[in-house]
């Protein structure tokens, strides 16, 4: 899980949008509960914006340098899949840098 520590090298900002109560956002909510502390400790400078809004589809947004953004829809994904999606976003960041 070494990629977790390099979040701030590739990302400028990570945004997790989710609903406070809908079942579609359930896995995202548990993902945040379980991983936020870890991600924040490893990347203390990176803004990890968690934005609740009723009825919104869970999404993961990454902003890279020069305002480039990529997103992943998280509806129906399990926690492991969300982790994987995040890792993919990190990889995109690496490829964008190159």
């Amino acid at each position: 899980m070494a990629w977790r520590g390099c979040l701030s090298h590739n990302f400028k900002e990570l945004r997790i949008l989710l609903c406070q109560s809908s079942p579609a956002s359930l896995t995202t909510r548990t993902f945040v509960e379980k991983n936020y502390k870890d991600l924040n400790t490893l990347n203390p400078k990176l803004p990890i914006l968690i934005r609740e809004c009723s009825g919104v589809e869970p999404q993961l947004w990454a902003r890279y340098d020069m305002g480039v953004e990529r997103d992943v829809r998280l509806e129906g994904l399990t926690e492991e899949q969300i982790c994987k999606a995040l890792e993919d976003l990190v990889k995109i960041g690496e490829s964008l840098k190159a």
Binding site: Q20, R29, V32, E33, K37, N40, T41, E52, S54
Partner: peptide, 12 residues
């Protein structure tokens, strides 16, 4: 009003 659900307990 969109209340916030995650409390400060998540913070290191």
């Amino acid at each position: 009003r969109e209340p916030a659900t995650f409390t400060a307990s998540l913070k290191p």
